[in-house]
């Protein structure tokens, strides 16, 4: 006997869609910002390196929950109240992801041997060409498994956005539970939704990792 009616189930599914949407925003925004920060981390300019490192340290040292509150109330104090929660949540998750992705990618960029930079330099390639034609293609291969792995973390972390009133999957579960108080089936369904999103990614990440190991004898 199903304790939820169709409308309630749809409400959860709707929440799941918002989770996907917020994850995408966080991943795309975090990737763009994170890539810039990663480049900053390996810049030849000390000040830029320091600025990028500081960004990473501060963001990694701040709980996502606090970032969410900061951006939500911070933006309101600046006079932009009534901004949809998705904007604050998207911004907070973008900032959060940027620091972690930057650090993952910095490691991948730096794991390409220095001699590759040098060889490209000696052939006359400029910095931009060295980066995009020689280093990045090699780093990308190394970066894919941990990046996909982090995507799974982002999806799960979107649930924290409920604290600023954003109705994503976890919050939708809470709302439905407040109405009918059937926590077990409700949150089992919620868990299934999360699992359906994360599991394929985890599998993908693992298979990428296996391929990488075979490929790099």
């Amino acid at each position: 006997m199903m304790p939820l009616n169709l409308a309630q189930f749809e409400y959860l599914a709707h929440g799941a869609l918002w989770t996907v949407g917020l994850s995408l925003i966080a991943f795309v925004g975090g990737s763009v910002l994170g890539f810039i920060v990663a480049l900053g981390r390996i810049s030849t300019n000390r000040l830029i390196r320091l600025a990028a490192a500081t960004w990473i340290q501060i963001i990694q040292g701040t709980p996502l929950l606090v970032l969410l509150f900061l951006l939500y109330f911070g933006i309101a104090i600046l006079g932009f109240d009534k901004l949809p929660a998705i904007i604050s949540a998207g911004a907070a998750l973008t900032v959060y992801s940027s620091a972690f992705l930057a650090e993952i990618w910095r490691g991948c960029l730096q794991s390409v041997p220095k001699t590759q930079w040098e060889a490209a330099d000696c052939l006359g390639l400029n910095r931009f060409q060295r980066m995009f034609q020689v280093i990045l293609p090699q780093a990308l291969k190394i970066a894919t498994p941990p990046t996909v792995g982090f995507l799974v973390q982002i999806i799960k972390n979107t649930s924290l956005a409920s604290v600023i009133g954003f109705i994503e999957l976890a919050q939708a579960g809470k709302v439905v539970n407040n109405a009918i108080f059937e926590p077990l089936p409700i949150f089992l369904i919620v868990a299934c939704f999360y699992f359906a999103m994360c599991f394929p990614l985890s599998m993908w990440s693992r298979s990428l990792e296996r391929k990488l190991h075979v490929g790099s004898r």
């Binding site: 040098e118 052939l123 390639l125 291969k141």
Partner: peptide, 23 residues
């Protein structure tokens, strides 16, 4: 160099073509 430093993600031909094309 002693350690060749070929670009592992490119074929032999692409290794050679890269600089003439880009530079």
């Amino acid at each position: 160099f002693q350690s060749y430093n070929l670009f592992p993600h490119l074929t032999v031909e692409q290794n050679i073509m890269l600089a003439p094309r880009s530079v």
